[in-house]
Design a protein around this nucleic acid. Structure first.
Length: 475
DNA sequence: GTAGGGTTAG
């Protein structure tokens, strides 16, 4: 050992040594974070292998970075695999590790997993921070458990963890999703009055929530209020506005919004492209949809599963099923999972091309993969059977569906009316109303007109009573 | 490492 090293300054030298390692691990982490952000996960993994080979020790931040990226790209399982790897390497998970996993569970709509992870965290003696509570609350709201989400908020207050702007924004978003638009609106006003944090995310949450629930007048008001503040509207604001235009039949206005974003170079990711592509697909303007697909790909931002779903939907609607399935393989080979949207899009595409058996197989495959019950995919098949006048097959399918909604019954009621089975249609309409569901006004009109023309007076009376009852009971 | 915008069916 050289004299300068041992000469009374061992601690300092070791300290300096440790400092050097810290710096290098930090550099490694920065490098991995950049690679993960750019979507080069495989490269990030190989950099980690090289670092370990060079004797550079990865720390908890290294693993947390990789874990978050894997979780985002391939789901919770992939994140859990990284946690196992870090434990094997002797690095113990911390609050950040668990927060990322809970966020991963949230993205996949897995509230039970999120709750289990939160418990596991407590068991391991890792104190949850405000991010843990925010992520858990977010997961519960998004998966349709608003009461439990409020419970988490109360728990947070009880533990003395101060809510931050994210907490309030998550609450606002959750209220909208649970259908409590007015409560959200009141809370927004309360935040303003009380001087609590109200930023661009808050405004965007309000505008989007109001638009989604059809309260376009209120949304306009909040948007013009935003114009009078110091907060600049951003690409998120405009994407929400665009979507609202498309939804309420103002196609040209939506397209103009998109084009001005494009013109000013504001489009930094694929979100606005997906909105405008699917609006073109809905209009049947496939050529323009393809033009913007090319632009989106050329734009160079990483394509995630929602982008792939948009492209797959376009191919399906063009009748190019082989290309659509090719895209599914491409996304899965790239480490992205197909999700409930992918399956609904495929089932819909198969039905549209008349491949009913293949659509049924796709539904079975979905169950085999252990995916969540997919009401949209089932509705596509119900609708296709009705359109083919196979209403008995549609009824059989409906009877084994775990969950039915307005779409299910609208398709069936329309289908039954189309083949002149008005008595059966009125029966299902009443079942639907009794279950708290509803059908489109056009379906109600079809049943009433049919019953009237074929002289089913008793059924007509029962349907009218049921419709009036439902109207009284609805908020 | 958490919050806001995008993708499916009548």
């Amino acid at each position: 050992m050289p004299a300068w090293y041992s000469k009374g300054s061992g601690a300092m030298a070791r300290g300096r040594g440790r400092g050097r390692w810290l710096l290098s691990t930090r550099l490694l982490n920065v490098c991995l974070a950049a690679l993960c952000r750019g979507g080069s996960l495989a490269l990030a993994e190989s950099v980690l292998v090289d670092a370990i080979r060079l004797g550079l020790p990865p720390d908890v931040v290294t693993y947390n970075t990789l874990l978050a990226a894997h979780c985002r790209a391939a789901g919770l399982e992939a994140g859990l695999a990284v946690m196992r790897r870090m434990r094997e390497a002797g690095v113990e998970p911390d609050a950040v590790t668990y927060n990322s996993l809970i966020a991963g569970a949230s993205r996949r709509g897995l509230p039970i997993h999120a709750l289990d992870l939160f418990d596991e965290m407590l068991q391991a003696g890792i104190a949850p921070d405000s991010w843990s509570y925010n992520a858990l609350m977010h997961c519960l709201f998004r998966s349709g458990h608003p009461e439990d989400a409020y419970g988490v908020f109360a728990d947070m207050a009880e533990k003395g963890i101060a809510p931050c702007s994210t907490t309030y924004n998550t609450l606002l978003d959750g209220m909208f999703r649970a259908g409590y638009a007015m409560n959200a609106y009141r809370m927004f006003r309360y935040l303003q009055r009380a001087g609590l944090p109200v930023g661009i995310v808050t405004y965007n949450t309000m505008i989007n929530g109001l638009c989604r629930l059809g309260k376009v007048g209120y949304a306009r008001m909040v948007l013009s209020e935003l114009g009078r503040t110091d907060h600049a509207p951003n690409v998120v604001t405009y994407t929400a506005v665009m979507k609202c235009c498309f939804r309420y039949g103002r196609f040209e206005q939506g397209l103009d919004t998109f084009l001005s974003l494009l013109d000013k170079g504001y489009i930094s990711d694929a979100f606005p492209y997906c909105t405008v592509i699917s609006a073109f697909v809905k209009k049947g303007r496939m050529e323009e949809a393809n033009t913007y697909c090319d632009l989106m790909i050329k734009n160079g931002s990483r394509l995630d599963s929602a982008c792939y779903n948009t492209l797959i939907h376009l191919r399906c609607q063009e009748g190019k099923l082989d290309d659509a399935f090719e895209l599914v393989s491409m996304m899965e080979d790239g480490g992205l999972e197909s999700d409930e949207y992918t399956f609904a899009i495929l089932v819909n595409g198969l039905c549209k091309m008349g491949h009913i058996e293949a659509a049924e197989k796709q539904l079975c495959y979905m169950e085999m993969r252990g995916m969540h019950y997919n009401v949209v995919a089932y509705n596509c098949l119900v609708d296709a059977l009705c359109k083919l006048q196979e209403v008995d097959a549609a009824i059989r399918l409906l009877q084994c569906m775990k969950l039915k909604d307005d779409f299910t019954y609208t398709s069936l009621v329309h289908g039954l009316c189309r083949v002149g089975r008005y008595h059966m249609a009125s029966k299902f309409l009443r079942i639907c109303l009794r279950e708290g569901n509803n059908v489109l006004a056009s379906a109600k009109r079809a049943v009433i007109a049919g019953l009237r023309s074929s002289g089913f007076k008793n059924d007509l009376r029962k349907v009218r009573v049921a419709l009036n009852m439902a109207k009284l009971l609805r908020p």
